[in-house]
Amino acid sequence: MATAVEEISANRHYNGYNRRYKHRSTVLGCDMTFTVYFPPAAETGKVPVLYYLSGLTCNDENFIQKSGAQRAAATRGIALVAPDTSPRGLGVEGEADSWDFGVGAGFYLNSTQEKWRAWRMYDYVVEELPSLLRSTAPFATSLDVDQASVFGHSMGGHGALVVGLRNPQTYRSISAFAPVCHPINCPWGVKAFTGYLGEDRELWKQYDACELLRSFSGPVRPPILVDTGSADKFLQVQLQPQALEAAIQETGYSPATMRTQEGYDHSYFFISTFVDDHINFHADVLLPGK
């Protein structure tokens, strides 16, 4: 059970509020921060929740400060919830030796390796954080956690695809900016999965969107939207959107939309350009007819 939540900052924005919080995570064994954008509609009733999962080296503030997503979220009446990307402050040997593993690089999985036992961002995002929002003031009276969707960028795009596809009853829609589509077959993913999950590649498949699509079953299929920039320097080696598109075509997963945005790179300039599309994509599912 999560402990009390402390508000550490608040900023008025598009007639709503960005509010940053700290709490003690029992899943991760450390203090964690997360930020919620409450749209104006949250002042008079419960609003749906859209989780945003950030990429490598990021924390909960990057998206909130750089994306400009609050304008569309305010207009459509959707709360944005941005968690951090890994445990912090545990002092694990080697946790900060590289930017693509350890601190800031949780990959939204549950580590099976003893050294990295605290790296359980999948359980934090899917279970602990929603439970906290559902049961704790001020969230319980303003957020409809049972009406939720998920999106993210890069490592967080991978995370959004994974948690969405593994929990289709929980997340009504899924989208991603420049996701790591096939991590069991790219350098970032191989490094992270080897370190967190060990050498058994069969265990890796549960955290790979392409493999999850190939094993997907059940009547509920959350719609998917993926945007990638043609000028992204990580496109071919790390992101591999062609692998995701092939898995979608192979399995007939629908509805799923893959878009290539000409000339755009991996940055928040790219995200901020198309973030309204993603907010509206999710709002159309979460708030049909509004």
Rank of each mutant, 00 (worst) to 15 (best):
K205T: 13
A160H: 04
L129C: 10
A105G: 12
T194G: 11
R201P: 14
V150W: 06
K191Q: 13
C210W: 00
E211G: 00
K205N: 11
S131Y: 09
M121G: 05
L129A: 06
V126P: 05
M121Y: 06
P168V: 04
M121T: 07
Q169Y: 13
L197C: 05
I174T: 02
A178I: 04
A105P: 07
G195S: 10
K205G: 07
R117A: 13
G159V: 05
S173W: 01
H153I: 06
D144C: 11
E202Q: 15
A105I: 06
K205D: 11
N110Q: 10
H182W: 12
P179S: 12
A140W: 04
L213R: 01
Q206L: 09
D100E: 14
Q147W: 00
F107S: 02
A96Y: 11
Q113K: 14
A140E: 14
A148N: 07
K191S: 11
V145C: 12
D146F: 10
G104C: 10
G157V: 01
D200C: 07
D200Q: 09
F151Q: 00
S142R: 15
R117C: 05
G156P: 02
S154Y: 06
S135A: 15
E127P: 00
G152H: 02
A140M: 14
R117M: 07
V145F: 10
L197Y: 03
I184N: 14
E202I: 13
G164I: 11
E127H: 12
S111L: 01
W116G: 04
P138L: 03
L213P: 10
M155F: 12
Q206G: 10
